[in-house]
Design a protein around this nucleic acid. Structure first.
Lengths: 187, 187
DNA sequence: ATGATTTTTTATCATTTGTAAAAAGATTTG
DNA sequence: CAAATCTTTTTACAAATGATAAAAAATCAT
């Protein structure tokens, strides 16, 4: 709860009135490892903040699943296409660890955006930074080979390495587990 | 000019006052094929709308360049990291055809965003859709092999195929020109 | 039109990555 | 503790892609 508000304020300072109204609309929920925050086929009507724990977002491809991203504590995110376009999501959000999340419903946030310009500004910035991160991911996928992407991940997310399986990491990197094992063996 | 405003209104309806003030801040410029809209090392202080023509955005990797995206007429875009974070850009915007663009300066847009809630909403939506498109690109890069990505591009951007070189297309797809030629030969 | 330049294709070989199956290691559970 | 399950590594072979070079085709400039 408090951390959600802190995260927002670090991105875009809110006045007291907006802060209070936002705080009133927050919910908190803890789910067990292996449980879903969003199941395949649902519409994503929430923006999540991870207080504690770790989740992954993934989509089901033709014959296997692909991991879009891992979100550890202190991350704020949603399934953007489903959230914005109010469509059924191809994505699933799964807890890799027992996870506590603070979230707000889209309907509430939209109302707050309309009422408080500062909250709309926050939301714009949130989406902007999400977009910048995706841009980086695309450029990495274009420029770097599998070994470089692995090393890059190590450098940027060394703490996560202990918390996710190598199968999931390989999937995120866009290679097979066997290929990742080979890369690791070479060092 | 008119098309810029139309694009904005299709994303998020503006009231007359906001429309007028926005219109007053627009600039138009035509650049020749091969000229730059943004040079490497500049800060991107504008949001562009392509009235006519075609540009590509690319960044210089270690020993070659990589194309982020093509923008034909009726596209609105910026170099997001540079724009948002006011940093020197790794990206270059190059005209692949003689191109007419209508643009607005960040400083002007920010002022308008502060004044008109509806303009901030438009901007939020613009960034949201940009983000959704990047999300799609990432999932395609994860799920599809080179042949599938090529076919996907054909399906989604068949008109562009006549206007860009196969070298540029291969680069965008993340493969070599030779590899693309092989894929095309197989059909 | 013609010569120069750029783009695209073809061919060869090296490297990377994928697939499948088995083995080894780690973790969970009764 | 031991069986069962899950994860990771290893091996062998196949397929895809990259690098390089050269030829062919297309485009551009004069």
């Amino acid at each position: 709860m408090a951390n959600f508000i802190q995260f927002v304020n670090e991105l875009s300072k809110l006045d007291k009135q907006a802060t209070d109204e936002l705080t009133n609309k927050l919910h908190t929920k803890t789910i067990q490892k292996g449980a879903y925050l969003l199941e395949n086929g649902e519409k994503c009507r929430k923006i999540f903040f991870i207080d504690q724990g770790l989740v992954k977002t993934y989509f089901n491809g033709k014959d296997k699943a692909f991991i879009m991203k891992f979100f550890p504590e202190n991350s704020m995110f949603t399934v953007l296409d489903s959230y914005i376009q109010i469509t059924v999501s191809n994505y699933t959000i799964l807890a890799l660890e027992t996870t506590t999340t603070t979230f707000i419903y889209k309907s509430d946030l939209e109302a707050l955006c309309t009422k408080h310009h500062s909250i709309e500004t926050f939301f714009r910035k949130l989406v902007s930074y999400t977009s910048i991160n995706m841009m980086k991911r695309i450029s990495e996928m274009l420029e770097e080979n599998a070994t470089e992407r692995y090393n890059h991940f190590l450098k940027e997310h060394s703490q996560l390495l202990q918390r996710i399986s190598l199968g999931d990491l390989a999937n995120y990197l866009g290679i097979t587990q066997v290929s990742l094992s080979r890369i690791r063996a070479k060092k």
